[in-house]
Computed example of a mutant assay.
Amino acid sequence: MGALDGRVAVITGAGRGIGREHALLFAQEGARVVVNDLGGAPDGTGADAGPAQQVVEEIRAAGGEAVANGDDVTDADGAERLVRTALDTFGDLHVLVNNAGILRDRQLVNMSDEEWDAVIRVHLRGHFMPLRAAARYWRDAAKAGRELRPAVINTSSTSGLFGNFGQTNYGAAKSGIASLTHIAQLELDRFGVRLNAIAPAARTRLTESLSGEAKPDEFGFDPDDPANIAPFVAYLATADCPLRGRSFFVHGGSVQLFQPWALIDGIETDHRWTVAELQERAGRLADVPFELNLPW
Protein backbone atom coordinates (compact mmCIF):
# COMPACT_ATOMS: atom_id res chain seq x y z
CA MET A 1 0.00 0.00 0.00
CA GLY A 2 1.33 3.41 -0.97
CA ALA A 3 0.81 6.58 1.03
CA LEU A 4 -0.99 8.15 -1.96
CA ASP A 5 -3.08 5.21 -3.13
CA GLY A 6 -6.28 6.43 -4.76
CA ARG A 7 -5.09 10.04 -5.02
CA VAL A 8 -4.98 11.88 -8.35
CA ALA A 9 -2.33 14.58 -8.56
CA VAL A 10 -1.51 17.39 -10.97
CA ILE A 11 2.14 18.47 -10.80
CA THR A 12 3.28 21.48 -12.80
CA GLY A 13 6.84 21.88 -14.04
CA ALA A 14 7.22 18.12 -13.64
CA GLY A 15 9.38 17.41 -16.68
CA ARG A 16 12.68 18.10 -14.97
CA GLY A 17 14.34 18.78 -11.65
CA ILE A 18 12.33 18.93 -8.44
CA GLY A 19 8.99 18.52 -10.23
CA ARG A 20 10.17 15.37 -11.95
CA GLU A 21 11.16 13.87 -8.61
CA HIS A 22 7.73 14.76 -7.21
CA ALA A 23 6.03 12.96 -10.08
CA LEU A 24 8.15 9.83 -9.80
CA LEU A 25 7.69 9.50 -6.04
CA PHE A 26 3.97 10.29 -6.16
CA ALA A 27 3.48 7.50 -8.68
CA GLN A 28 5.64 5.16 -6.62
CA GLU A 29 3.39 5.91 -3.63
CA GLY A 30 0.29 5.00 -5.65
CA ALA A 31 -0.92 8.33 -7.02
CA ARG A 32 -2.11 8.73 -10.59
CA VAL A 33 -0.21 11.71 -11.94
CA VAL A 34 -0.76 14.43 -14.52
CA VAL A 35 2.75 15.50 -15.53
CA ASN A 36 2.51 19.11 -16.70
CA ASP A 37 5.44 20.85 -18.38
CA LEU A 38 5.87 23.23 -21.30
CA GLY A 39 9.44 22.03 -21.67
CA GLY A 40 10.91 25.50 -22.04
CA ALA A 41 14.42 26.76 -21.32
CA PRO A 42 15.37 27.99 -17.81
CA ASP A 43 14.36 31.52 -18.84
CA GLY A 44 10.96 30.30 -20.03
CA THR A 45 11.57 30.54 -23.75
CA GLY A 46 10.74 27.74 -26.15
CA ALA A 47 8.73 24.57 -25.66
CA ASP A 48 9.36 20.84 -25.80
CA ALA A 49 6.84 18.10 -25.04
CA GLY A 50 9.65 15.58 -24.60
CA PRO A 51 10.53 16.01 -20.90
CA ALA A 52 6.97 15.55 -19.64
CA GLN A 53 6.38 12.53 -21.87
CA GLN A 54 9.66 10.99 -20.75
CA VAL A 55 8.59 11.23 -17.10
CA VAL A 56 5.26 9.63 -18.00
CA GLU A 57 7.08 6.77 -19.70
CA GLU A 58 9.32 6.28 -16.65
CA ILE A 59 6.26 6.09 -14.41
CA ARG A 60 4.47 3.64 -16.69
CA ALA A 61 7.56 1.48 -17.03
CA ALA A 62 7.62 1.17 -13.24
CA GLY A 63 3.96 0.11 -13.19
CA GLY A 64 2.42 3.49 -12.36
CA GLU A 65 -0.24 5.59 -14.04
CA ALA A 66 0.48 8.98 -15.58
CA VAL A 67 -0.43 11.25 -18.44
CA ALA A 68 1.45 14.20 -19.94
CA ASN A 69 0.01 17.69 -20.26
CA GLY A 70 1.64 20.62 -22.04
CA ASP A 71 -0.75 23.43 -21.19
CA ASP A 72 0.52 26.87 -20.14
CA VAL A 73 -0.26 27.25 -16.43
CA THR A 74 -0.33 31.05 -16.73
CA ASP A 75 -3.29 30.86 -19.12
CA ALA A 76 -6.81 30.61 -17.68
CA ASP A 77 -8.03 28.21 -20.36
CA GLY A 78 -4.82 26.20 -20.08
CA ALA A 79 -5.28 25.83 -16.33
CA GLU A 80 -8.86 24.65 -16.85
CA ARG A 81 -7.66 22.12 -19.42
CA LEU A 82 -5.02 20.94 -16.97
CA VAL A 83 -7.64 20.16 -14.34
CA ARG A 84 -9.87 18.63 -17.01
CA THR A 85 -7.00 16.33 -18.02
CA ALA A 86 -7.00 14.85 -14.52
CA LEU A 87 -10.79 14.48 -14.48
CA ASP A 88 -11.08 13.01 -17.97
CA THR A 89 -8.14 10.63 -17.56
CA PHE A 90 -8.41 9.53 -13.94
CA GLY A 91 -11.91 10.60 -12.90
CA ASP A 92 -11.03 12.99 -10.09
CA LEU A 93 -8.49 15.41 -8.60
CA HIS A 94 -7.13 15.37 -5.06
CA VAL A 95 -3.74 17.08 -5.19
CA LEU A 96 -2.23 20.09 -6.93
CA VAL A 97 1.50 20.70 -6.75
CA ASN A 98 2.43 24.09 -8.22
CA ASN A 99 6.10 23.84 -9.12
CA ALA A 100 6.66 25.43 -12.56
CA GLY A 101 9.12 28.29 -12.64
CA ILE A 102 11.77 30.22 -14.55
CA LEU A 103 14.61 32.64 -13.84
CA ARG A 104 15.48 36.02 -15.36
CA ASP A 105 17.99 37.31 -12.81
CA ARG A 106 19.05 40.93 -13.07
CA GLN A 107 19.80 43.78 -10.68
CA LEU A 108 16.83 46.08 -10.22
CA VAL A 109 18.26 49.10 -12.02
CA ASN A 110 19.11 46.99 -15.08
CA MET A 111 15.99 44.80 -15.16
CA SER A 112 13.76 45.15 -18.19
CA ASP A 113 9.98 45.29 -18.09
CA GLU A 114 9.85 41.92 -19.83
CA GLU A 115 12.24 40.28 -17.36
CA TRP A 116 10.03 41.43 -14.49
CA ASP A 117 6.74 40.50 -16.15
CA ALA A 118 7.86 37.07 -17.34
CA VAL A 119 8.99 35.91 -13.91
CA ILE A 120 5.96 37.31 -12.08
CA ARG A 121 3.69 35.74 -14.68
CA VAL A 122 5.16 32.23 -14.61
CA HIS A 123 5.56 32.00 -10.85
CA LEU A 124 2.73 34.00 -9.31
CA ARG A 125 0.09 33.86 -12.04
CA GLY A 126 1.26 30.32 -12.80
CA HIS A 127 0.29 29.37 -9.24
CA PHE A 128 -2.96 31.32 -9.20
CA MET A 129 -4.47 29.93 -12.38
CA PRO A 130 -4.22 26.19 -11.60
CA LEU A 131 -5.17 26.87 -7.99
CA ARG A 132 -8.31 28.72 -9.00
CA ALA A 133 -9.30 26.02 -11.48
CA ALA A 134 -8.77 23.25 -8.93
CA ALA A 135 -10.44 25.20 -6.12
CA ARG A 136 -13.59 25.70 -8.17
CA TYR A 137 -13.81 21.95 -8.72
CA TRP A 138 -13.24 21.23 -5.02
CA ARG A 139 -15.79 23.85 -3.98
CA ASP A 140 -18.43 22.21 -6.13
CA ALA A 141 -17.45 18.77 -4.86
CA ALA A 142 -17.73 19.93 -1.24
CA LYS A 143 -21.14 21.43 -1.88
CA ALA A 144 -22.21 18.10 -3.39
CA GLY A 145 -21.16 16.35 -0.18
CA ARG A 146 -18.04 14.65 -1.58
CA GLU A 147 -15.12 14.37 0.85
CA LEU A 148 -12.00 14.52 -1.29
CA ARG A 149 -9.62 15.94 1.35
CA PRO A 150 -7.77 18.00 -1.30
CA ALA A 151 -4.20 19.19 -0.83
CA VAL A 152 -2.23 21.96 -2.52
CA ILE A 153 1.53 22.32 -2.27
CA ASN A 154 2.89 25.62 -3.59
CA THR A 155 6.54 26.36 -4.27
CA SER A 156 7.99 29.46 -2.66
CA SER A 157 11.70 30.18 -2.18
CA THR A 158 14.19 31.51 0.31
CA SER A 159 14.90 34.18 -2.31
CA GLY A 160 11.51 35.62 -1.43
CA LEU A 161 11.27 34.75 2.26
CA PHE A 162 14.87 35.73 3.10
CA GLY A 163 15.80 37.83 0.06
CA ASN A 164 18.54 37.37 -2.51
CA PHE A 165 20.64 39.89 -4.43
CA GLY A 166 19.74 40.21 -8.10
CA GLN A 167 16.34 38.53 -7.79
CA THR A 168 13.79 41.26 -7.12
CA ASN A 169 11.43 39.72 -9.68
CA TYR A 170 11.85 36.11 -8.55
CA GLY A 171 11.87 36.99 -4.86
CA ALA A 172 8.77 39.16 -5.11
CA ALA A 173 6.91 36.36 -6.89
CA LYS A 174 8.03 33.72 -4.40
CA SER A 175 7.13 35.86 -1.40
CA GLY A 176 3.76 36.44 -3.03
CA ILE A 177 3.29 32.69 -3.36
CA ALA A 178 3.76 32.26 0.39
CA SER A 179 1.11 34.93 1.01
CA LEU A 180 -1.16 33.37 -1.61
CA THR A 181 -0.91 30.08 0.27
CA HIS A 182 -1.79 31.63 3.62
CA ILE A 183 -4.76 33.64 2.36
CA ALA A 184 -6.10 30.87 0.14
CA GLN A 185 -6.08 28.61 3.19
CA LEU A 186 -8.33 31.09 4.98
CA GLU A 187 -10.72 31.09 2.03
CA LEU A 188 -10.70 27.41 1.05
CA ASP A 189 -10.64 25.84 4.49
CA ARG A 190 -14.45 25.61 4.51
CA PHE A 191 -14.24 23.34 1.46
CA GLY A 192 -11.79 21.01 3.19
CA VAL A 193 -8.79 22.12 1.14
CA ARG A 194 -5.36 22.13 2.77
CA LEU A 195 -2.64 24.39 1.39
CA ASN A 196 1.03 24.52 2.31
CA ALA A 197 4.11 26.04 0.71
CA ILE A 198 7.67 24.79 0.52
CA ALA A 199 10.88 26.73 -0.06
CA PRO A 200 13.12 23.98 -1.45
CA ALA A 201 16.90 24.02 -1.73
CA ALA A 202 18.27 21.55 -4.26
CA ARG A 203 20.47 21.21 -7.30
CA THR A 204 18.50 21.85 -10.50
CA ARG A 205 19.23 23.42 -13.87
CA LEU A 206 18.05 26.73 -12.37
CA THR A 207 20.54 26.54 -9.50
CA GLU A 208 23.42 24.51 -10.97
CA SER A 209 25.65 27.58 -11.16
CA LEU A 210 25.31 27.94 -7.39
CA SER A 211 25.21 24.34 -6.14
CA GLY A 212 27.68 22.82 -8.60
CA GLU A 213 28.24 19.09 -8.92
CA ALA A 214 26.94 16.43 -6.55
CA LYS A 215 28.88 16.24 -3.26
CA PRO A 216 27.74 13.19 -1.30
CA ASP A 217 28.80 12.95 2.33
CA GLU A 218 30.81 10.08 3.79
CA PHE A 219 27.67 7.94 3.87
CA GLY A 220 26.81 8.65 0.22
CA PHE A 221 23.99 11.08 0.99
CA ASP A 222 23.82 14.09 -1.34
CA PRO A 223 21.90 16.86 0.49
CA ASP A 224 21.43 18.82 -2.74
CA ASP A 225 19.76 15.99 -4.65
CA PRO A 226 16.33 17.25 -5.83
CA ALA A 227 14.86 13.86 -4.91
CA ASN A 228 15.24 14.85 -1.24
CA ILE A 229 12.39 17.35 -1.58
CA ALA A 230 9.76 14.91 -2.85
CA PRO A 231 9.05 12.86 0.32
CA PHE A 232 7.87 15.89 2.32
CA VAL A 233 5.73 17.08 -0.59
CA ALA A 234 4.23 13.59 -0.85
CA TYR A 235 3.51 13.69 2.88
CA LEU A 236 1.75 17.04 2.51
CA ALA A 237 -0.34 15.45 -0.25
CA THR A 238 -1.57 12.54 1.86
CA ALA A 239 -5.26 12.54 2.72
CA ASP A 240 -4.75 12.66 6.49
CA CYS A 241 -1.87 15.15 6.76
CA PRO A 242 -2.77 17.67 9.52
CA LEU A 243 -0.59 20.56 8.25
CA ARG A 244 -2.34 23.54 6.67
CA GLY A 245 -1.50 27.15 5.86
CA ARG A 246 2.19 26.71 6.64
CA SER A 247 5.46 27.37 4.81
CA PHE A 248 8.50 25.13 5.16
CA PHE A 249 12.18 25.21 4.21
CA VAL A 250 13.18 21.82 2.82
CA HIS A 251 16.77 20.79 2.10
CA GLY A 252 18.48 17.41 2.30
CA GLY A 253 17.13 15.74 5.43
CA SER A 254 15.95 19.00 6.99
CA VAL A 255 12.38 20.35 7.20
CA GLN A 256 11.98 23.67 9.00
CA LEU A 257 8.86 25.73 9.67
CA PHE A 258 8.86 29.41 8.77
CA GLN A 259 7.53 32.06 11.13
CA PRO A 260 5.40 34.49 9.09
CA TRP A 261 5.83 38.23 9.41
CA ALA A 262 5.36 39.12 13.09
CA LEU A 263 5.26 42.33 15.13
CA ILE A 264 8.32 42.31 17.39
CA ASP A 265 8.60 45.87 18.73
CA GLY A 266 7.07 49.32 18.33
CA ILE A 267 6.36 52.77 19.66
CA GLU A 268 3.00 54.24 20.67
CA THR A 269 1.40 57.52 21.59
CA ASP A 270 -2.12 58.62 22.55
CA HIS A 271 -2.35 61.23 19.77
CA ARG A 272 -1.35 61.75 16.15
CA TRP A 273 2.41 61.62 15.80
CA THR A 274 4.39 64.68 14.81
CA VAL A 275 7.47 64.29 12.67
CA ALA A 276 9.55 65.82 15.45
CA GLU A 277 8.31 63.20 17.93
CA LEU A 278 9.07 60.41 15.48
CA GLN A 279 12.55 61.83 14.91
CA GLU A 280 13.08 61.60 18.65
CA ARG A 281 11.60 58.15 19.27
CA ALA A 282 11.37 56.03 16.10
CA GLY A 283 15.08 55.88 15.34
CA ARG A 284 15.64 53.25 18.02
CA LEU A 285 13.72 50.73 15.88
CA ALA A 286 16.76 50.59 13.61
CA ASP A 287 18.64 48.92 16.44
CA VAL A 288 16.06 46.20 17.17
CA PRO A 289 17.61 42.80 16.35
CA PHE A 290 16.10 41.37 13.17
CA GLU A 291 17.15 37.73 13.09
CA LEU A 292 16.24 35.76 9.96
CA ASN A 293 17.56 32.45 11.36
CA LEU A 294 19.14 31.57 8.03
CA PRO A 295 19.42 27.78 7.72
CA TRP A 296 22.86 27.95 6.11
Rank of each mutant, 00 (worst) to 15 (best):
Y170M: 12
A197K: 01
V10K: 02
V73D: 06
L82K: 13
A68D: 00
A202E: 03
F165C: 15
V255Y: 09
G192A: 12
I153D: 00
K174W: 05
T89P: 07
L24D: 01
P42W: 03
I229A: 03
A14H: 08
P260Y: 08
G15T: 09
A134P: 08
G192L: 06
R32Y: 07
A23V: 03
L25E: 04
L285I: 01
R132G: 07
N164P: 11
I198Y: 09
H271V: 03
A237R: 10
R125S: 09
R16N: 02
R190F: 08
D117Y: 02
R121C: 10
L38T: 04
G266W: 07
H94G: 15
N164Y: 13
T45E: 08
S112I: 02
V193E: 02
G91Y: 07
A172L: 01
H271S: 09
K143W: 06
H251P: 00
P42C: 12
M129R: 05
A144E: 15
Q167L: 12
A201Y: 05
N196D: 12
R84V: 08
R246Q: 15
A276D: 12
P200D: 06
R84Y: 04
T89A: 15
P242L: 09
Q54R: 12
G19V: 01
G50S: 07
Q185M: 02
W261P: 03
G266T: 01
I267W: 00
R106T: 11
V33Q: 07
F249G: 00
D105K: 08
W116T: 08
F191I: 06
A282H: 01
F232N: 12
I183N: 13
D117E: 12
D265R: 04
I11W: 03
R203G: 11
G64H: 03
A201P: 00
D92F: 10
T158Y: 00
L25G: 10
G171D: 13
V83M: 14
A14C: 04
R244N: 11
F221I: 14
P216V: 11
G283N: 04
R146M: 13
R136Y: 09
E213R: 09
D113R: 12
E29P: 04
A227R: 07
W273R: 04
R139E: 13
L82A: 13
A184T: 07
G6S: 05
P150M: 04
F128Q: 14
D189V: 12
T238G: 13
V56M: 04
T181C: 09
I198C: 08
M111E: 11
G192Y: 08
A197N: 08
R205C: 07
